[in-house]
Nucleic acid binder design. Structure first.
Length: 922
RNA sequence: GCCCGAGUGGCGGAAUCGGUAGACGCGUCGGUCUCAAAAACCGAUAGGUUCACCCCUGUGCCGGUUCGAGUCCGGCCUCGGGUACCA
């Protein structure tokens, strides 16, 4: 057993860990806890490629490292198993999603186990498991049964709100759903149940509302924005229309401020926090009511720049704005009708792609409340119905879009910026002085904002207003493969099912097609939807992010049948200390799971309101594609170096047929029938391919499977190499050639323990030399420092250097080799376990103590000082560390290299930093 | 357009606090072993000049601060990511 048989070693230890449940953890421990979590995967049909495990390897290294440092580590894995691809596969192939998902999970687990992760698999969860989604449904009911108290900024039970209504009405508690709803206690008492429940719906955190969606009558289904092109359905070209449908929503807007404030407490990257802030999109300004000449109605606008009110030259309403129809004059009616039908036919996608200026004058005028000027009211696409009040006051001299619009339609521009406005383009500055602006003329703009808001408030026609870009989150899907809602309708009023009836299990269907009236496939099952007592089940299912919003809690207590997670257990494991995953979930999953955590905390079910203490976003690994060049119109392929002489088409070649850049032409001919007749123009007897870095994916034939890497080089090599590729948080290309270097390193490590030729072990009980100790302890320090700051790639370099040095020193001392294995084991657990056992240990290296580095062993007796003259390196001198400064100077000045550049002059100044660097200034 | 982030050898990258730029690895070249090749191992490898030492240049570009700048400041250029008629 003295050769490095990595396949045997991998298998042996993976089996050992499984049989001994080495990584099983319990919550009752005196050790400090550490929770390190991966974003769980959606098990797709194509399995893992080498890009996927990058984050898993990093988190596994941290998990193993923290275990060695004496922490009780929770490191679980599971599967986000509900989702669209499985359902799409079912529609196309008739395979039930449960079956294809099961199969995919089996593949994922096998691939993950090959890499030697230290997951506690006894905690595995699947979001599509009824024992799991039972609690997803339960949390939904918590959301349904609660409301957000703005004065306390937290969620409370809906029963509390009912008590408030009965006692005092809603006068202190305006409805987020119906802004103009006011009633007192007596009113509430007289409302029939249906009306009471309708009112409560306006407060619930999970609520039903009518939302505008694209409806296609011919296809009998709702379409997403990107499925509608040029006003017709992408598939089939059928007409579509805007339709209001009743959908479930989560009232995430109430938590906007909490979600922003929470970002201060968590350790996420600046860019990710910025993405979340932009998503919430909080802005400060005012709502202003403008009188409309000849009408009783007011036109309410939202603006962040009330100070520019004297520069308003026109008003714009969104085409969907309800006042458009009311105020349009007879003279303008025909033009407006034409414009509205044009606007209605354009999807949001088209609006975004094609931003030409369009609009139409309504014929009506608003009145400037300060100077009485009449302001023409227009409608135009560039104002969105969904943001602010759906209407704006346009200030062309200060806003680019308003300026472009004014320019396009020949509207005269008022200048309130003095010479800060050049008449050519708008100037959106906030740091200017206001001109030509009535009572605020001469004021600074920031000051002007306050003055105008005050004046508006005094007249009762405007007030300070904070606006958010974020909308309430749609929570309904007309799909099959998701969590059913635990809700039933009686006379069209939704009621929560009692907890005892959970889980509402997803029934079996044979047909995955849409149901009637924009409903999902479940609506095709009357036996399921219609309860014997006449109540009707909700037929929508929950979206993909439902199950993933709380899964980190279930891992803590995965088999609990009476609660989603026991409170004492969640108190122990608490927040996720390190959460590892990609940025693609920056504003989706991360925001929703932060929301659910806050609600569960407010309702007293857990003790913390941010799920993830620290977030690490791993980069993506790109594929290194290979291209062959086919001369256009022929079956002849020209080698990359000669292609300039021909007109060619690029063909992606499967990377398995290429060594470096050299194509195996026989394999290429056998690859696909249409290549069988291929001829090649070679250079130097070889066909060389071109290379390109791009996304790793099937269609580019550049996918590298981790299974192949593990089979060829072993799990340890694969793990270390993935970390060695570069900083964990940047995108980087995969280069299979480079993996050899890491493999050589592990062989070199092996040879430190075994003489393979003589088939004998090399370690001894000999005391280590000072130099050996220095090498080891430097490595311990470096590995620890780098892991604490999540610099995974530099750790590999440090370990390689350590082994290189120990090899040069012919180190054989067990006192060095043992700690070396411990610090290496998070990266290369299999080989370390094996060697650890050879050294005579009976217990797994997992239970070893992490060695402590000793500064005094690292410090050297002499130090090499670089000597600069006038800032340029001129000499190096070696002196004892504790040598007096004056003595160091004497030696430095006597050095021939320095003497030469002093040119006989006396030094003016010496610079001495940390006793290490000297600069002699002449 | 706006907001982030990054530009270092042939390549991936290192330099943690402003202090010997290019660690570690790949590739390439040379060597050992071999009849030979592969594998393995050893050595060289920023560019210029040179037999070699020296010396000079060098971290996207221009300028600044400093005894000293890849690192800090100002102005550009390029690439990557996010986001967008958000008033």
């Amino acid at each position: 057993m003295s050769t490095f048989a990595f396949q045997t070693i991998d298998q042996k230890w993976q089996q050992f860990w499984k049989e001994n449940q080495t990584y099983r953890v319990a919550h009752n421990s005196d050790k400090p806890k550490y929770y390190v979590l991966d974003m769980f995967p959606y098990p797709s049909g194509s399995g893992l490629h080498v890009g996927h495990p990058l984050g898993y390897i990093a988190s596994d290294i941290i998990a193993r490292y923290k275990r060695l440092k004496g922490y009780n580590v929770l490191h679980p894995m599971g599967f986000d198993a509900f989702g669209l691809p499985a359902e799409q596969y079912a529609i196309e192939h008739g395979v039930h999603p449960a079956i294809s998902t099961e199969k995919n999970i089996a593949t994922y687990r096998r691939q993950l186990e090959n890499i030697g992760f230290s997951y506690d698999w006894s905690r595995e969860i699947r979001t599509s498991d009824p024992e799991y989604y039972r609690w997803t449904q339960w949390i939904f009911l918590q959301l349904f049964d609660s409301w957000f108290d703005r004065s306390q900024q937290k969620a409370l039970p809906i029963a509390d709100l009912e008590a408030i209504f009965a006692a005092e009405g809603n006068l202190s508690y305006p409805s987020p759903g119906q802004k103009d709803l006011h009633f007192n206690a007596a009113d509430w008492g007289h409302y029939p149940e249906a009306q009471q429940r309708e009112i409560l719906m306006g407060y619930r955190l999970a609520f039903l509302d009518h939302a505008s969606v694209w409806w296609c009558e011919a296809l009998g289904t709702v379409l997403a924005n990107d499925e509608v092109v040029n006003g017709v359905s992408e598939r089939g070209g059928h007409p579509v229309e805007r339709k209001k449908l009743r959908q479930w929503f989560l009232r995430i807007t109430e938590y906007a401020d909490r979600l922003l404030e929470g970002l201060e407490q968590v350790d996420f990257s600046d860019s990710l926090k910025e993405m979340q802030r932009n998503w919430v999109g909080k802005s400060y300004g005012a709502e202003i009511d403008f009188e409309i000449e000849g009408h009783a109605e007011k036109l309410r606008v939202y603006t962040t720049r009330p100070d520019t009110i004297f520069g308003v030259d026109f008003m714009v309403m969104a085409p969907e704005h309800e006042l458009v129809a009311q105020i349009t004059t007879t003279g303008q009616q025909a033009e407006i009708d034409a414009y509205l039908s044009y606007a209605k036919s354009r999807s949001e996608v088209e609006r975004m792609a094609d931003k030409k200026i369009s609009g139409c004058f309504t014929g009506a005028y608003a009145v400037n409340p300060f100077d009485g000027r009449l302001i023409p009211i227009w409608t135009a696409e560039y104002v969105l119905a969904g943001y602010g009040t759906g209407a704006i006051m346009a200030v062309p001299c200060g806003d680019e879009r308003d300026f472009a619009f004014a320019h396009h339609f020949g509207i005269a521009v008022t200048n309130i910026l003095g010479d800060q406005f050049n008449g050519e383009e708008a100037n959106p500055t906030k740091d200017g002085v206001l001109h030509n602006s009535g009572f605020i003329t001469g004021m600074g703009m920031r000051e002007g904002i306050e003055a105008v808001i005050e004046a508006l408030a005094g007249k009762g026609i405007g007030k300070r207003h904070t606006n958010y870009r974020m909308r309430d989150a749609g929570f309904s899907r007309q799909r099959y493969w998701g969590e059913p809602f635990p809700v039933v309708f009686r006379e069209n009023i939704p009621y929560a099912l009692p907890e005892s009836e959970l889980p509402v299990e997803l029934p079996h269907v044979d047909n995955y097609g849409a149901g009637p009236d924009g409903q999902g496939p479940l609506a095709n099952l009357p036996a399921w939807t219609q309860l014997p007592d006449g109540r009707l089940r909700e037929t929508n299912t929950m979206p993909g992010y439902a199950g993933s919003s709380w899964y980190f809690l279930r891992y803590m207590d995965p088999h609990n049948e009476t609660a989603f997670c026991d409170r004492t257990i969640s108190d122990y494991w608490n927040q996720v200390d390190l959460y590892v995953g990609g940025t693609e979930h920056a504003v989706g999953h991360l925001l929703y799971s932060r929301l659910w955590t806050k609600v569960l905390c407010d309702l007293g079910h857990i003790s913390f309101d941010e799920p993830y203490k620290k977030l690490l976003n791993q980069g993506k690994i790109g594929g290194d594609s290979r291209l062959a060049y086919r001369i256009r119109g022929t079956q002849t392929y020209v080698s990359a170096g000669l292609k300039a002489d021909y007109e060619t088409d690029e063909i992606h070649v499967d990377i398995s047929m290429v060594q470096g850049f050299e194509l195996d032409v026989e394999a290429f001919r056998n690859w696909r029938p249409d290549f069988a007749q291929a001829e090649f123009i070679l250079e130097n007897g070889k066909y060389l391919c071109g290379g390109r870095l791009e996304k790793m994916g099937k269609r580019y034939f550049n996918v590298v499977n981790p299974d192949d890497m593990v089979a060829q080089y072993g799990a340890d090599t694969f793990r270390m190499y993935e970390m060695f590729l570069g900083p964990i948080d940047t995108d980087k290309p995969w280069d299979t050639q480079g993996i050899e270097g890491v493999h050589r390193f592990l062989r070199k490590l092996w040879r430190l323990f075994f003489d393979e030729k003589a088939a004998k072990s090399l370690w001894t009980d000999q005391a280590p030399s000072a130099e050996e100790l220095r090498v080891l302890h430097r490595a311990i320090r470096k590995v620890e420092d780098d892991l604490e700051r999540l610099s995974f790639n530099t750790v590999v370099s440090a370990l390689m250097m350590c082994v290189n040095d120990l090899t040069d020193l012919k180190c054989s001392s067990k006192a060095i080799l043992e700690p070396l294995l411990v610090i290496l084991s998070p990266y290369a657990p299999h080989i370390c376990e094996e060697l650890w056992q050879h050294l005579g240990h009976t217990e797994s290296i997992v239970f070893a103590d992490y060695p402590v580095w000793d500064e005094s062993l690292i410090r050297e007796n002499t130090v090499e000082l670089p000597i600069q003259v006038n800032g340029k390196m001129r000499a190096k001198i070696t002196v004892p560390v504790d040598m007096e400064e004056a003595e160091v100077r004497k030696i430095a000045l006597a050095d021939p290299g320095v003497v030469k550049f002093l040119e006989g002059k006396e030094p003016k100044k010496f610079i001495l930093v940390k006793g290490r660097i000297i600069n002699v200034v002449v």
